[in-house]
Amino acid sequence: MTVASAIFYFFAAILIFFSIKVVTTKNLFHSVMSAFAVLLGTAGLFFLFNAEFLGIVQILIYAGAVTILVLFVVMLTTAGPKYRIVWETPLNIWIFVFVILFGGMLGMIVLSIQWPVAKPVALHGVTEALATRLFVEYLLPFEVASILLLAALIGSIVLARRD
């Protein structure tokens, strides 16, 4: 077992454990913090897979901004005397069966396809290559994405504004 493989199994165990914690824990705050751990673990896997830029972006945007935003919303919407915690939901057996079957289907598809795998090489200057790809070949989708972000920004302000 190589070092990379050991690191991969470590992060995989962290990811699976904390994602189960996200969906099973009763406490809203614990759930959000478990999601934070899952996003950080994914950033670690990105670093392992030659994607330094994406790893940094994942830590900055997801682990930083998204978790803080969600925590703000949790604090804003679960405070006050009007709020009652009714998280104890009976486990819906049909959803469980559906998810098991769905996951099995995904696994079978993954295992049944002969992926054209090449020997992975450690690249240098991944960020530069990614920027070239993004600003030369995918310039139009990049600009459309910025318009989408602007629209989402204005929409969120309009929706959440108290008038």
């Binding site: 991969f8 995989a12 990811l15 699976i16 994602s19 189960i20 996200v22 969906v23 809203l28 759930s31 959000v32 899952v38 896997l45 897979f49 969600v70 919303v73 949790v74 919407t77 009714v86 998280w87 939901t89 486990l91 819906n92 959803i95 469980f96 559906f98 998810v99 098991i100 769905f102 996951g103 995904l106 696994g107 993954v110 295992l111």
Partner: peptide
């Protein structure tokens, strides 16, 4: 291995999105 891990994570996320009662979660 990576694809199986992602499939497991996706299934867990699906389960949570279908069963949890809070919009935030």
């Amino acid at each position: 291995q990576v694809l199986i891990l992602a499939a497991i994570l996706f299934s867990i996320g699906t389960f949570g999105a279908l069963t949890r009662k809070s919009i935030v979660i």
